[in-house]
């Protein structure tokens, strides 16, 4: 087995997801226009943030979405929540096509899908008390008459998220990063959504409190039957919370497989490199290990190369990789990878 540390203490197991597909993403592409090129400005320059990404998330499942900065992982998360309009592809939620949902309908859809932010400092309005913050979703959706009327619900939710009972009347700046993230989670849960996109929820936190927040999210998943899209930029955090892991590279899916399969038998060379960058808390073992250090640059997203996106850094690169893009194929049952040589 590829030795990967248990960086998050496993308190409870992963709940067993049902077979029902909650979120289906099919052929999702997101391009952003960034200006014009050519003498007369005849060519529109476009950033290919996400290209032809497809996956599905089962009810009760956690899908870990891993990729480096600029790989498009946040964009995928925002597109599913319909914050960003996709250029192509469809997004289905509970079997319903939500690709074109907007306005009041979209606002009502927010009751079922919520976001946990990366930055626990900037995502809480500093002028509001914790009570106002967590009660806001209830008030704007008419589930509570006023902030005060929602107080008992909010307090029990805060306690459920591991916050002291008197937290409700304080402002966010009175809390530490870990506690603020708990407030953010409580806010996301206030409406009892089915689906939560967690956009790097622990990457801004101290290592010492990461495990607590991940454990909290896992406990909540057990209790409330939540489905997560857990976005992260390295593999160390997602292992224990994710049922399956999707690896995104430069806007394309490189690998998609069960969590253990990704760690124990990675197929894509990029996944291997990612795994080898996770340190092992055992100095002799860490020293003996072969680290794959990638050479080369990430391709320019404005003009991505034809062929495989990973060709500029891949140790296995051949001519065929430069000519055509490897399709995402099922190499083993449930284990998808986009590489010609694996």
């Amino acid at each position: 087995m590829t030795a990967v540390p248990e960086s998050t203490a496993l308190r409870v197991g992963r709940p067993v997801p049902s077979e029902e597909l909650l979120v289906e993403v099919d052929g999702l592409s997101i391009h952003f226009p960034v200006g014009r090129a050519g003498f007369w400005g005849q060519r529109v320059k476009v950033v290919h943030a996400v290209d032809d990404v497809s996956f599905a998330i089962r009810r009760g499942e956690t899908l870990g979405l891993v990729g480096e900065s600029g790989s498009g992982k946040t964009t995928v998360g925002r597109a599913i929540l319909r914050r960003i309009d996709p250029t192509a592809g469809t997004i289905r939620f509970q079997g319903e096509d939500i690709t074109a949902t907007k306005g009041e309908e979209l606002r009502l859809l927010r009751q079922h899908m919520q976001l946990v932010f990366q930055d626990p400092y900037a995502s809480l309005n500093p002028r509001m008390t914790v009570l106002q913050l967590v009660a806001e979703p209830l008030v704007v959706h008419g589930r509570a008459k006023s902030v005060e009327a929602a107080k008992s619900d909010v307090v029990s939710l805060l306690e459920r998220c591991g916050l002291p009972a008197d937290a409700a009347d304080r402002h966010p700046h009175a809390f530490s990063g870990g506690q603020r993230q708990r407030i953010g989670i409580a806010r996301a849960l206030a409406l009892r959504p089915h689906f939560i996109v967690a956009d790097e929820p622990v990457s801004a936190l101290d290592v010492s409190v990461r495990a607590q927040v991940v454990n909290l999210m896992q406990d909540l998943q057990h209790e409330l039957g939540l489905t997560y899209l857990f976005i992260a930029h390295d593999l160390s955090v997602v292992r224990h919370i994710s049922h399956r892991i999707a690896i995104l590279y430069a806007g394309k899916l490189a690998e998609l497989a069960d969590s253990d399969a990704v760690y124990e038998s990675p197929l894509h060379p990029y996944t291997e490199a990612l795994l080898s960058s996770v340190p092992i808390p055992d100095p002799p073992l860490q020293r003996a290990r072969r680290r794959i250090v990638l050479q080369g640059e990430i391709p320019n997203p404005i003009e991505p190369p034809t062929g495989c996106r990973f060709q500029t850094r891949c140790p296995l690169v051949q001519d065929v990789c430069r000519r055509q893009a490897p399709p995402l194929e099922e190499k083993a049952p449930g284990h998808w990878a986009a590489c010609f040589f694996r």
Partner: peptide, 25 residues
């Protein structure tokens, strides 16, 4: 562009509320 404004929109606040409660202060 502040994350807490995005958070307000995500939570389902109507535009008027986002403007007057979250941006105006």
């Amino acid at each position: 562009e502040r994350p807490y404004v995005e958070a307000a929109e995500m939570v389902g606040c109507r535009p008027r509320r986002v403007m007057f409660v979250h941006i105006l202060p």
